[in-house]
Design a binder for these strands. Structure first.
Lengths: 244, 244
DNA sequence: CGCCGCAAGATCGTATATCATTTCAGATAC
DNA sequence: GTATCTGAAATGATATACGATCTTGCGGCG
């Protein structure tokens, strides 16, 4: 049994370490060193890094080398906004194909999330959250959109373990909104309504995180132009302000 | 002046040939042969192909080689649907940032499209169409979404030169819808309205192409399950039927 | 004291060489 | 006549080697 190619091994090795945070953003990826660790030559490692580069996981500079992609301040905003759009679409497109059984599964996952609320474990809650949403959008018949959703979630993983660690109240709201989405799908609601509800669900999390961090951020590094911004649609303004 | 790296050269070489159709889908990419043509060794060519693979332009099988990605029957549908979603979002997000001048530019492009209608040149019309839409979405502040739109257009390029070659009446409708979108933006319409209008614009093209091909397709290869399907929302049903 | 230039080390870029796998033609057996 | 086996040719996979480029630290000079 010939194992996977060295190139593939290297890809998986790097990808795993980037995903779980052992290689933090900015971490320098030295070809020779990685090759030695894997006991291969540098050629397959280079190929793996090319793939990761094309996927946005690492940045590469000629004659300088690769490093785990740096995330800007605004990266979280952009990722969440993008995900809100593609996930909303995927959920809506997926809805007509969900069987009663699959909807039951989703509801069971949401029930487990509700129980986790009592003895709150952000990591577990986030894992269930992914499971719940995946159950709703995986039936999307358009593979491109599905791929975009997966990429969005992956990128989100890079950014921080979970949004729910930061915003206390958000988890409970989230469970309630999940139930609402389930009801819409079961009732055979208009696709657009499902899409916009799913989108709003994500946007609400984004807004909650932004509002929370805006309040709790180190006052030393306070926002320069908006010392006491009103709390409402934070996301929209923040995203707009990142045009530079 | 050191030129771009060999790896980059190879990437651009292949990409150009895939984009303009000299390398048709299914075309076998033999490493050694390409390396000889470019007068480089195979290593940089391999790296280039890894990038193209990650971007979906080529498929790769171990110990067998690479070929230009094959497009399934449904690929056009999926690409257009995905593009309708991300382009709609990008246009909507971009709208608030468009200056009066930029809107003027877009309108001028649309006027040129209108003039092309008289002496119809599908290729030229398509080029202007890209220009028009780019003018409207390029101001989108979210780089991820912008990237998705670009990828969508690129993939569309691979599929066929233009949708407008196929559907006679669609070009004129398209120009009219462009004008409508411009008016919405100028009037400062709700973001959601802009988004859905831009989305519907693309969906309408998709529907027109589907309806046209359904009618004019070789009767020998007729649709198996829907011999005389009603004409209305073709796209939705077609997309649904591709779940397999 | 700080800036500039130079040299050494680190790292990347590419070519070449060798091994592994696949493919396919031709031969052989049934 | 067909099927299966076999071996050579084509191609991909990886390792090694060497030259190119960048980074860094040290020493001289203003």
């Amino acid at each position: 049994m010939t194992s996977a190619s060295k190139s593939q091994q290297a890809y998986e090795y790097l990808r795993a370490r980037i995903d779980d945070g052992r290689f933090v953003p900015g971490y320098r990826l030295v070809l020779g060193q990685i090759a030695r660790e894997l006991d291969v030559s540098v050629v397959p490692v280079r190929e793996a890094i090319r793939r990761l580069e094309a996927e946005g996981y690492v940045t590469f500079e000629r004659n300088v080398g690769a490093q785990v992609a740096l995330i800007q301040e605004t990266e979280y905003l952009h990722t969440m906004q993008t995900l809100s759009i593609v996930e909303g679409a995927a959920t809506s497109l997926s809805a007509p194909f969900l069987t009663a059984e699959q909807l039951q599964d989703a509801r069971r996952i949401n029930e487990r999330m509700r129980r986790v609320l009592d003895d709150f474990d952000p990591h577990r809650f986030t894992a269930l959250n992914i499971e719940f949403h995946a159950a709703l959008y995986e039936a999307c018949p358009n593979p491109h959109i599905l791929d975009l959703v997966h990429r969005g979630w992956n990128r989100l993983n890079l950014l921080r373990d979970t949004s729910f660690s930061f915003v206390p109240g958000r988890a409970a709201e989230s469970v309630a909104e999940h139930e609402h989405i389930l009801e819409l799908i079961e009732a055979g609601a208009e696709p657009l309504e499902i899409e916009l509800t799913a989108r709003a669900h994500r946007t609400a999390t984004l807004d909650a995180v932004l509002a929370f961090t805006a309040e709790h951020k180190h006052p030393t590094a306070a926002a320069p132009a908006a010392p006491a911004a009103p709390p409402s649609p934070v996301a929209e303004r923040q995203l707009a302000s990142t045009t530079d």
